[in-house]
């Protein structure tokens, strides 16, 4: 089987979790701790400032990619909640100007991404980082003079907020990836996103969303495999998210992907909105679970609703 080798992919990756971990019993939740423990959750990481996590994740990704901040051509900042895109002013006032203090711009200044153009990715829920990667690849494809696009995702729930969403325990976290043309860790093979506006009203359609999850997830995965000219059994590793652990074997069985291909996380951090997949991809990479040539499936769901599936090939190219 021949796979079209593209010269775009992930060159560097970085993630950051807060230091403070709070066990289930001490979190504000909707379900009982026992119910959530049965779904594989132990607690959540809570951040004082998610934007500082974004800085940490970005620095790690740049180091991993061996790219300097001023070499970044574009920054795409992804956040699920409106609050994620706003940085409090250093001199807060009651004027509407406070609403124009953007995290992307703040991050550019903090890190010194001086040459980068800055944009935000929103309204994707937990799929924000997937959309950022997709746009990054599209930018590199459409504008040949660009070399490196930095994608950063960071989310934190407001202090005191319920930490459970649809039977998932939510941690605060950030992730970053440098999308480039050379020295790739992971080569991009295919991406597919299905969006269904019918589910825009999350509180009203909560149960319909749960019911729609599996059929739409399977459709997105089938489509991405078809776009990559792969069969389900050609996938070597499936990187899960931190959502309800019992849902992954069901999804893999529906898709015809052998269950043993599901990566088993060593570190449990719950569901971090945008960063799960990348925390676990980074972990799989660090623990030697990935080898060059392996095909890796990444999948996530985001409120909106969007179902995103991405297939990467482990490249392991040398840095120059």
């Amino acid at each position: 089987m021949s796979i079209q080798k593209t010269s775009i992919g992930l060159r560097g990756l970085g993630c950051a979790l807060p230091e403070r971990f709070t066990p289930l019993a001490e979190l504000p939740l909707k379900s009982t701790p026992e119910t959530l423990a049965a779904f594989g959750f132990t607690g959540a990481y809570l951040a004082e400032d998610a934007h500082q996590l974004a800085v940490a994740a970005t620095q790690k990704a740049l180091t991993d990619a061996e790219v300097l901040p001023r070499e970044i051509d574009a920054l795409l900042f992804a956040g699920a909640l409106p609050l994620a895109h706003q940085r409090p002013s250093e001199q807060p006032s009651s004027t509407p100007l406070n609403g124009f203090c953007y995290v992307g711009s703040w991050l550019q200044e903090e890190i010194g991404l001086d040459r980068a153009s800055v944009s935000g990715i929103a309204q994707q829920g937990c799929a924000g980082m997937f959309s950022a990667l997709r746009v990054a690849r599209a930018l590199l494809t459409a504008e040949p003079h660009l070399e490196h696009v930095l994608c950063v995702g960071a989310d934190a729930l407001p202090a005191g907020a319920c930490r459970e969403i649809l039977y998932n325990v939510i941690s605060d976290a950030a992730c970053a990836a440098v999308v480039s043309r050379t020295a790739l860790r992971h080569r991009w093979l295919a991406f597919h996103q299905i969006s269904k506006g019918f589910y825009w009203d999350v509180p009203t359609k909560e149960r319909e969303i749960i019911a729609a999850y599996f059929p739409a997830a399977r459709a997105a995965i089938n489509r991405v495999l078809s776009e990559a000219s792969l069969r389900p059994e050609d996938i070597d590793v499936v990187i899960p998210t931190g959502v309800n652990a019992t849902s992954w074997p069901i999804l893999l069985r529906l898709c015809g992907i052998p269950e043993k291909r599901l990566y088993t996380p060593q570190h449990r951090f719950g569901h971090t909105i945008a960063a799960d997949t990348f925390l676990l991809l980074e972990e799989a990479q660090a623990t030697g679970a990935l080898a060059p040539g392996m095909r890796v499936l990444l999948f996530t769901y985001g409120f909106g609703s969007s179902w995103c599936a991405l297939v990467l090939e482990v490249a392991g190219e040398e840095k120059q």
């Binding site: 269904k196 506006g197 019918f198 729609a212 059929p215 739409a216 399977r218 459709a219």
Partner: peptide
């Protein structure tokens, strides 16, 4: 619209 599809 395809928002709801036949179950698996």
């Amino acid at each position: 619209s395809g928002a709801i599809v036949t179950p698996e």
